[in-house]
Simulated assay, not measured.
Amino acid sequence: MPARPSSPCRAKLCRNLTREKHGYCEDHADLAKAWTRGRAGRGRGGRPWRRLRAQVLQRDRYLCQPCQRKARAKPATAVDHIVPEAEGGPTVASNLEAICEPCHTAKTLDEARRARERAT
């Protein structure tokens, strides 16, 4: 079988050529591991997540739980972790709740702020 033609390395600003299937030169081969992993094993995407998401939405009657705690009724458009994965929360139904887009955005911004504070 003929050798694969050389192509530029996929790493930014790298000018090396490679024949590897993953597209990285020897200097950047460690980046290929992240490339091949993708989202696998992170608990989101795919049929299992869609089933769990549908189960949580049905359990919460398609209503935003944070809004319900404030005595408001709003339709939920997403499912979010109660305890974030970054803080050790598992992806199980008991740690998920239905949430509307404005609440999800506010919660995500708050989690990002807390993460920045922990990093400093």
Rank of each mutant, 00 (worst) to 15 (best):
A3S: 15
C14L: 08
E111W: 10
A86H: 11
L17A: 13
K74H: 10
N95I: 00
N95G: 08
I82Y: 05
G43P: 08
G88R: 02
G43R: 13
D110K: 10
R113I: 07
T108E: 12
E111V: 13
A71K: 09
A86I: 06
R53M: 10
R4S: 12
K70V: 00
G89S: 03
Y62S: 14
T36D: 05
D30W: 13
H22M: 03
D80R: 14
C67R: 06
C100T: 12
K107I: 03
E87G: 00
E117S: 09
A78V: 06
H28P: 02
A112Q: 15
T91E: 09
L57V: 04
K74Q: 14
S94M: 03
H22W: 11
A34I: 02
P66A: 03
G43D: 06
E87R: 02
I99P: 04
A76M: 12
T105M: 05
K12N: 09
G38D: 01
L31R: 12
M1Y: 12
G88P: 06
A40R: 14
K70A: 07
G88F: 04
H81D: 04
A98Q: 08
A76R: 08
D27Q: 15
E97V: 07
V92Q: 13
E87L: 07
H81L: 03
K21I: 14
R15M: 06
G46Y: 07
A119H: 11
T36C: 04
L17D: 10
P90S: 08
A93E: 09
E26A: 15
D110S: 10
A3F: 08
G46N: 03
T36K: 11
R37L: 07
R15I: 08
S6E: 15
